[in-house]
Amino acid sequence: MRWWVCAIALAVVLMADAALMPAFAWRGMSPQLWPTLLAFIALYASRGGAMWAAVVLGLWMDALNPALGIGSMAPRAVPVFGPHALACAAGAWTILELRAWLYRRNALTVAFAAAACGLAASLTFVAVAGLRSSYADPSPLWGGGSGAAALGNDALEVLVSAVVGILPAWALQWTVPAWDFEVAGPRFGGGRGPRQGA
């Protein structure tokens, strides 16, 4: 996998999620593109490459979502690294386990994988955040309410993201040669023949 392509794609997706996607919000749910991109990478890249991409994406997301602690006049914002990194790693790992059964060269497959990836990531995030809220955080990292409610909200948002992500997934399929994936096969790997990833 070409890492510079991956880094640019991750940055573009994070910027779009933060600034552009609220324009497509539906009933307060803003679709996200990161599950689509992570699922796409996990479908094509080597296992190691996909997991590294997930960790980098997760750390970037951790930087953007600080936890709130106790302050004297107002809550204290502290970026906590780790929860999103683990969540994204879990999401990528789920797709890595599923991809043998998936017909990957289809935008609908990427959308389905995005939903599975997002759900696994949400489950992991809520588990980690729930653990943290028992001793470290005055309010849970997911914002408020019960963990089950947070999971429900995340599930709905992931479904919306998967539906909205069909078009970006279709666009991503066209970029496969640019990524130089190790397991993409001769048709999408730029004619160099299939190589087995690490």
């Binding site: 999620d17 600034a19 997301m61």
Partner: peptide
Amino acid sequence: GGARPGGL
């Protein structure tokens, strides 16, 4: 924050 609603 783009990952969760109600982000800072």
